[in-house]
Amino acid sequence: MIPAGFEYHRPTDVASAIEILKTHGDEARVVAGGHSLIPMMKLRMADLAHLIDLQDIEGLKGIEIGAETVSIGAMVTQHELITHAGLSEALPIIREAALQIADPQVRYLGTVGGNVANGDPGNDMPGLMQCLDATYVIEGAEGSRTVSARDFYQSAYFTAREDDEILTRIEIPRLPAGTGYAYEKQKRKIGDYATAACGALVTMQGGTCTAASVAMTNLSDTPVWSEEAGAALVGTSCGPDAVAAAVAASLAAINPTQDNRGPVEFKRHVAGVIIRRAIEGAVARA
């Protein structure tokens, strides 16, 4: 469990980090909290000559609560997501989800940017960001561009980010009044990835659902946002039939695989339970 040798870089601005990335190509990787990359290096499954630590880049930090949008720097830790009062008020589902990631020690180091950018289907934040319809700000040598979280994930560990780009911020639209939320996750133990997890947002006005968003974690090789699940709820009172239709739509969108957590039929069954709990939880809070 000792990694191969590597050069350690610690730039203080994004431009310098991108420059190092460009210089060394696929021999270089950026590291944020390190909870995915460092174990892979220790297992020698990731072998890179240059490691670029982003922790001294001030521009990647901070949470800004705007009137329309919440902006979260890529290096914001999960611990900060949990303890930031303004964020908890504006988007309480983020706190609820972050509290279900691993344990406090991991959350002190683990960052939201690393969590969403790595493309690990087990990570919770990608599904959550799809649920929230977040936009990722990505910077490269040519400047900055944005990609919707819902378009970012291609397959496990493959994303719309190029090797010489850095995901720097996450922009999340604020939610209308009357929006309920829930993030439900089943896991074997603390520190494990989800057997099944689901984030749900449901906006109710006058007893009728006007908007809904459902996204799932670790049930396919990418996070899964189900447009059909939301559509099944909108225009209804979110009674049992509508919820059942939304769950069915969600299950139609997933493609779980067998692993040590269990076989496919078990995961699909659990997913049905977790998705329903998330939707019902969101409806109850709306």
Partner: peptide
């Protein structure tokens, strides 16, 4: 409730890290 050393048919250890080998924490 979960702690095992499991092998596949090829004799590969399936539970060789603490991700899969269950070691309870205070939470469990």
């Amino acid at each position: 409730l979960g702690q095992e050393i499991a092998y596949d048919d090829m004799g590969n250890v399936k539970t060789g890290t603490l991700m899969d080998f269950f070691l309870p924490t205070a939470w469990e």
